[in-house]
């Protein structure tokens, strides 16, 4: 393995890890505006890192490791085009979703508003909240104290 193989593998691992954490964040965050955070930031960085890793790989295929039937420089240009498109459209789409939600009058999630919007929330979030309540009661029942976070 040459050095750009190692750089490519490192970028790919970090990027895929960020994509996975972004997905978990989208699934687990409590409110819509909180969900924008993993969707807008960690996803974008993960995609950029994966595409940079693929660019390194396309460059590495130029000297002897070429798996493609086409010119490796064409692959590089295509990857740069995808990079530019994703870089421009991703934040724009996130901004548009946020603006649409704000114009629609969606309130940010707070702990006090949980009971108020309870009928709009899914069964998954209710189960999550009740499970968290049970854990909090157990930890306070243990009597250690001062371990709240």
């Amino acid at each position: 393995m040459t050095w750009y193989d190692w750089v490519s593998t490192l970028c790919l691992c970090i990027g895929v890890f960020l994509c996975l954490t972004g997905a978990v964040g989208i699934l687990r965050m409590p409110g819509f505006y909180a969900r924008l955070h993993p969707a807008g930031k960690s996803d974008s960085l993960g995609q950029f890192l994966v595409l940079i890793a693929l660019m390194f790989q396309a460059y590495a295929t130029e000297d002897g490791l070429n798996e493609f039937s086409t010119d490796p420089r064409l692959t590089l240009i295509k990857l740069i085009l995808i990079f530019l498109v994703v870089m421009i459209t991703g934040p724009t789409a996130t901004h548009a979703i946020t603006k649409a939600a704000f114009m629609d009058g969606l309130k940010p999630w707070t702990k006090e508003s949980t009971a108020e919007v309870d009928e709009h929330r899914s069964e998954f979030d209710k189960a999550h909240d009740s499970a968290r309540l049970v854990v909090q009661q157990k930890s306070s029942h243990a009597g250690k104290g001062g371990t709240e976070c």
């Binding site: 972004g22 989208i26 819509f32 969606l106 709009h120």
Partner: peptide, 12 residues
């Protein structure tokens, strides 16, 4: 829960 969550998830 809301339609914006769905749009965000589909975009992602």
């Amino acid at each position: 829960p809301t339609v914006f969550d769905r749009v965000l998830a589909v975009n992602s």
